[in-house]
Simulated scan of single mutants.
Amino acid sequence: MMTNLLAVDTSTENCSVALQWQGTFFSEAIESPREHSQRLLPFVEGVLQQGNVALNQLDGLVVGVGPGSFTGVRIGVSMAQGLAFSSELPVFPVSSLQALAQQTIRKHKAEAVVACIDARMGEIYYALYRSSNGIAEPLTDPAVAQPSVKLFSRHNLEGFHTAGTGWDNYSNVLDPENKLKQNADCRLPLAEDMLTIAAHGDISAVDAESLEPLYVRNEVTWKKLPGR
């Protein structure tokens, strides 16, 4: 099991970094949607300094690969690629939706979660998760759709909690009868929950060159770093 990990995430408005080193956790996070590129590296350097550890001493890197902001996802994935190349570390890609579900399980002991992120343009990214021994396990693949009361009609959502910014604007459309357990404190994913998911061992590591964003929208293509 990978135990010494650094996680970075800029897939949404949050810039979030977390370090797990020899059983101790360090983290930094701030909601700063237009400052990810300026804040991410100082956050990484900060948590490594707090842990008194060098990057190449770690077992691997964890990165939030989306879905979310296209620019934010690119920044996070590019940073993770750069760090992984420089230190020859494997990378564990984690969905921002799964991280939201994990946060809700951590904070509210949720048994099941509907994670939704505002995708702009009148759409949401969403996926359903259940808690399996305290870890967010996917029930559906991440998808994008226009908010509709019919979106979850084939799922029995009794006992489900909500997570993510998608509920900010579309709660009345998605859950008109207010059946779900709303969690206003689980709006944005955090790197610390990505650490938990990766450390559990269900996520397969990739090398830096193979790391790709999870855009969900098919028309968006990813360009790898120059020379890679």
Rank of each mutant, 00 (worst) to 15 (best):
P90K: 12
G72C: 09
N172P: 00
R154H: 13
L139E: 13
L19P: 02
V17H: 11
A119H: 03
A198R: 11
E158H: 12
W222L: 04
D168I: 10
T104A: 14
Y126V: 05
Y215T: 01
E192T: 00
A184M: 12
L214Y: 08
A191K: 13
H155G: 01
H161P: 07
W167N: 01
R74M: 01
F70Q: 05
T10M: 11
G134Q: 04
S210C: 12
S16W: 08
N56Y: 00
Y215E: 07
L225G: 06
S27K: 15
Q38V: 04
S148D: 14
T165C: 03
R106E: 13
L128E: 01
F92E: 09
I117C: 06
E137T: 02
T12V: 10
S27I: 02
A80F: 10
K179I: 13
G134V: 08
V91H: 14
Y170F: 15
L174S: 02
F152P: 02
A110P: 04
T3D: 03
E35W: 03
F25S: 05
N172L: 14
A143I: 04
I197T: 07
I197P: 06
F70P: 07
E219M: 11
A163K: 08
V73D: 01
P42Q: 05
S37G: 03
S78W: 00
A208C: 06
N172S: 15
L157Q: 12
P147F: 08
H200K: 10
G159P: 01
A198H: 08
V173D: 06
V73Q: 07
K181R: 14
P213D: 10
S32H: 03
K181G: 00
E28H: 01
V47W: 00
E13A: 15
Q57C: 05
H36D: 05
P90N: 11
F43G: 06
S96C: 06
E192A: 10
A208L: 14
E45M: 06
I124V: 15
V144L: 14
P138H: 12
A101P: 05
S78M: 06
A84R: 11
P176I: 09
Q49N: 13
T162N: 09
V113T: 09
K179S: 14
G166M: 12
R130H: 11
A191D: 03
Q57I: 01
G166H: 11
R154T: 13
A18Y: 03
L5P: 02
T12F: 07
